[in-house]
């Protein structure tokens, strides 16, 4: 299964709408102080739903290259 190498969050742009958290199928991200935060990077399957649906350009998922 694909894994994420890094999830970049641009906190300055995040408005805390929770769309990314609600669409995440594995619970890899959560809300912390009204902003999105990484809960467990290991859980991320790099499905890109959060990146695709973020209205604020605030979350970027970097896919891990196959070893």
């Amino acid at each position: 299964m694909a894994k994420a190498e890094k999830i970049e969050i641009i906190e300055k742009w995040c408005k805390g709408c929770e769309i990314c958290v609600e669409f995440c199928p594995t619970g890899a991200i959560e809300m912390r102080d009204f902003k999105v935060a990484i809960k467990d990077l290991e859980k991320c399957t790099a499905c890109m739903q959060c990146e695709l649906r973020c209205p604020d350009f605030a979350i970027i998922v970097y896919k891990k290259e196959k070893e």
Binding site: R53, C54, D56
Partner: peptide, 13 residues
């Protein structure tokens, strides 16, 4: 950026 749209506004999408 950030744009003026409210939190959760779908215009960004």
């Amino acid at each position: 950026l950030p744009h003026i749209w409210c939190a959760g506004c779908s215009y960004g999408i």
